[in-house]
Write a protein that binds this DNA or RNA. Structure first.
Lengths: 342, 342
DNA sequence: TATTTTTACGCAACCGATTGCAATTGTTGT
DNA sequence: ACAACAATTGCAATCGGTTGCGTAAAAATA
């Protein structure tokens, strides 16, 4: 096995009897280098199998063309679509994406933020961990002029870019949809989270919609979950079905929860949507696979990823220190499918 | 907003009137540095908000403690679980993981391989893109002593580490299971792919199982797909159900395909499993959600990820140039659920 | 032909952490 | 008290591109 040492611009320079500066410039089509030389250099580089050392360039220039993505997990459909959007946009502008998972742990999030900073990423896109209650570990980015974009689960009080949906309105629309389908006792699942207060917002929308339609808000129909998992969803659903009479509708702020409710209902002989209508959230792939198909709220994951990446890249280009860190709101829509049909 | 410049070991050295070499050593508990100094340095580093510059260290030492992961996509459950396993193991040994998606495109795979090399990753874990027909773009790793592990979709002819399941045996087991459940006309979906020949292997297992049980292999029951997607699954299923008589069983080499078959069957009024038994592959989350629950073959994604990462890390530690690049086989099991019950 | 511009390239410092070797200070033995 | 040795710390080169500035050569202008 041939033990190729990495080929550097020094090797090219030596071969062509040129200075490394010339090589460096030639490789990026600098205007002060003649076309002849540029061609010669590029050809030789190709022949020698030269691959630039990103570390060296990053160290010198203090910019790495790398976007750090810090999210709870890659396994949730919403988040993997988010990544997809980020990557597509990043790639167009020749940025590399490095993904880290906090697994919804505050401690890991702190560590990985440090790691991203340590790797001198050019920008950061983050969706907060469930556990996270303070955001001091993001100051290192803000303080050093590294663009920071929060997505979906964002902190309330932090002057930086945010890409979100209007969870309040989405919750309102979902609930209103159920009401329009004839529901009068609509249950709701929610989860507590201080910082990324999206469940609270959805709940707020739910409550407002009920009030606007003169439906009493019943505390027993609102169940607070510890975690947004299938298992907890089943537990909560069973609790709802133990009521007498049972609710006639459910707004679940996540498709997994909605699916768990549908399946629990089926197991207990409760007909969906005839006796119990359900609407979920996110438009995950399962929502189209489960029977009956799940009505849901669209969550424009890929668009959000693209938007976030675009903000980073735009900010990096025009290195003007925009102090106006605007919030980008993307639209959501009600997808009325079988599980909520009148 | 305070414009903190990055804090370096020079800053610490200046503050403490020490040499940068001392700082560097103190921060990593080098034995030649006194405890007193170590404590002082660490305390000051903490106070000043020092975060080591990975680029500088990587450039100097030519090792980045980074594992590059090059896979088709993060959105497939199998692959996101794979990542999960890699990450867990990597984190334990303080390695960073950088993920890149080829989107099953050869061209992108080549580019990202170059990018990983350019970033001087310490090791690479890869599952090949569907399109990929040659592996020359991985020579840069092999030639430079960068451990390379292929996972799941691996090239046949490449002397490097591989972590796989025995797709032949898995296909055999799946088919045998259906036979044991009473099926005598078992259909199979497959997909062509030269390099990552896992579908071929599964098909081979299917055929052998039939032969071993004296069941004729009927070409019309084997459908070759262009892509392993829900849509193509539906098409293929419809083709199968257009036969007269229809097959009484299906071994689908992926749960998405199995799900599409189950749903297509339901739409056409064919009862699963009474008239048509199905077994999938992978044990994706949907397999437990669909009604009837899907029988499937387990695919130890997380374990494979862990194994791959361990191989990388172990190889990096004992930098001995093992020429024996062994293949690691992990076990699969038949998960008999509702969709294949007698 | 002399002089100014332009074109094309070289020199050398720089980014920040690491590390072999030299140098300094402190200890121990005789 | 002095050599011998151990314990600490400093010096300076190094990794590989990048870039401001200087300079030689070629082209344009006087």
């Amino acid at each position: 096995m041939e033990e190729n040492k990495h080929v550097t611009i020094y090797d090219i320079a030596e071969r062509l009897n040129l200075a490394t500066s010339t090589i460096s410039r030639a490789l990026k089509d600098h205007h002060t280098i003649s076309d002849k030389t540029i061609k010669k250099v590029k050809k030789t580089a190709e022949e020698m199998g030269f691959v630039p050392n990103t570390l060296a360039a990053g160290l010198r220039g203090n910019k790495t063309r790398t976007i750090g993505v810090l999210i709870p997990t890659v396994t949730q459909p919403f988040l993997s679509s988010l990544i997809s959007g980020i990557e597509i946009t990043a790639q167009k502008s020749d940025y590399t994406v490095i993904i880290m998972q906090s697994h919804d742990s505050y401690e890991e999030e702190v560590n990985m933020a440090k790691s991203l900073y340590s790797n001198r990423v050019s920008g950061v896109i983050c969706s907060l961990a469930m556990e996270t209650r303070d955001t001091a570990h993001f100051h290192q980015f803000s303080n050093n002029n590294i663009p920071l974009v929060f997505v979906d689960r964002v902190p309330k009080e932090y002057n930086t870019f945010r890409v979100v949906i209007d969870n309040y309105t989405a919750g309102y629309k979902a609930t209103k949809h159920l009401i329009e389908q004839g529901c009068i006792r609509i249950a709701h699942l929610t989860a507590g989270s201080e910082l990324g207060n999206l469940y609270n917002e959805r709940k707020r929308g739910y409550i407002e919609a009920l009030k606007d339609h003169n439906i009493e808000v019943e505390e027993e129909l609102i169940i607070n979950l510890n975690s947004v998992t299938y298992e907890d969803g089943v537990k909560a659903s069973n609790a709802l079905f133990d009521l007498n009479p049972i609710p006639d509708g459910l707004f679940a702020p996540g498709d997994i929860l909605a699916v768990s409710a549908v399946q629990t209902a089926k197991k207990r002989g409760i007909k969906v949507p005839e006796e119990f209508k359900v609407i979920g959230f996110n438009n995950d792939p399962i929502s189209q696979i489960i029977d009956p198909n799940l009505s849901t709220i669209t969550h424009p994951a890929e668009k959000m990823g693209k938007a976030a990446a675009e903000i980073i890249i735009k900010n990096l280009k025009s290195s003007k220190n925009d102090d106006a860190k605007e919030i980008t709101f993307l639209n959501t829509e009600v997808l009325a499918r079988e599980s909520s049909q009148k």
